[in-house]
Design a protein around this nucleic acid. Structure first.
Lengths: 216, 216
DNA sequence: AGATACGTGTACCGTACCGTACGGTACAAG
DNA sequence: CTTGTACCGTACGGTACGGTACACGTATCT
């Protein structure tokens, strides 16, 4: 079963890559990070990765399959630490929230994430945007799920009060990310204050508690 | 003076387009909205707009100049209403904030804005992203300036309390937009609730007042 | 040793598209 | 009537890139 077939079947879940393929995909990531999509040509990747174009097509089907594989590979690298500290008091729970926000910012502002988002967005057209969906389901939705679980735990223990966990997460996201992500995607640079991820996460969580925290 | 020369000089300000050129740019916008960047070819635009490729190159220099002209043209269409209601009580000021947030969402979620953002992001590479900068300075920065003025007025009249107007604006932006913008750029669709711009703007402003409003 | 499988390197084809050149048309000014 | 300007339509060169075919090298299995 080829990868492109798997992609067409919307079924990209249980795909594993051999070490050799992962090395090639890492090269592809490097080309993408500095150079954008147009820098990732089949000939260029084959030259940089010391592999043949024929192998690329054997492994990934076609160029779209290659791009999808790059996204899937990068997404497979983010680990979800096991539910951190099931028994936590209010202070450590708040610290966990801050840590989550910090990691969120670290991921979104990372250059590989920026490069992949640029790639997926550039490919997205009106209707039919497979790369975008892939990035959403393998990236954003996973993070959102983890965040919802974290927030639900906080509500269950009486630290937070809200009706819709998803809405609460989106507010936390907005408070932490603001317009920094889109500005980076457009080529702007983050200000020094915005590069203090920990500080940004703390103020975001502070404001979040002002909105959804139980009365002091 | 050609447009491309003006672009290279970072000076794209006092550029005006003839009605004929604007009609062509409108066609280009249409091609961009449904089809993405690759759908906007010089031959295709010439065919759809009933103009010659030679005219395109005479007017816009090259394809990059054409893309830049499309962005500049669209940016030139957003008007800034004169400072609304200099003398306003607390209720109408809050209404003005809601109106601003509503318009912000309407712009960001509009399909032409999404298409242009996709275009600019797709063109942005590591270093050197002229389209992105153009969209930032002609779009985002203008909106941010207006928002800062509005917020400063609110602080001056005692409705709001904050130190940095820019930071306050970013919080308002985050509360209103959340992750909807990036999701749309990636090809996701807005939920029904998210399409209720007025309602979204109201809750965003409510939360904003919880953070920066003076004590009730 | 031979066979099968896998991968590299290279040459090649077809195509899409940018950019330009050129012929033809309409129109205004002298 | 001539000249200049602006534009359309089309055809063509150059090129970059996706995709394929093939020759050669290497390892593993029998």
């Amino acid at each position: 079963m080829s990868l492109s077939a798997a992609l067409n079947d919307q079924d990209f879940d249980d795909v594993e890559f051999t070490p050799r393929q992962e090395a090639v995909l890492e090269c592809a990531l490097g080309l993408l990070v500095d150079g954008g999509e147009k820098a990732l040509t089949t000939a260029g990747l084959a030259r940089k990765a010391n592999c043949s174009k024929e192998s690329l097509y054997k492994w990934f089907g076609d160029r779209d399959g290659l791009l999808a594989a790059v996204v899937a590979y990068q997404a497979s690298k983010v680990h979800f630490p096991p539910e951190s500290g099931a028994t936590a008091d209010g202070q450590t729970y708040r610290a966990h929230l801050i840590e989550f926000a910090t990691e969120l910012l670290a991921v979104l502002l990372g250059e590989t994430s920026v490069a992949l988002n640029r790639l997926s967005i550039g490919q997205s057209k009106r209707e039919d945007s497979r790369l975008g969906r892939l990035l959403l389901v393998r990236g954003k939705y996973m993070i959102a799920a983890k965040a919802r679980a974290l927030l639900e735990a906080g509500r269950h223990r009486g630290y937070l009060r809200f009706n819709d966990a998803n809405e609460a997460y989106q507010v936390l996201y907005g408070l932490a990310v603001r317009d920094v992500h889109i500005r980076l995607l457009l080529g702007d640079e983050a200000s020094p204050a915005e590069l203090d991820l920990k500080g940004q996460a703390e103020t975001a969580v502070n404001r979040f508690y002002k909105l959804f925290g139980v009365s002091l």
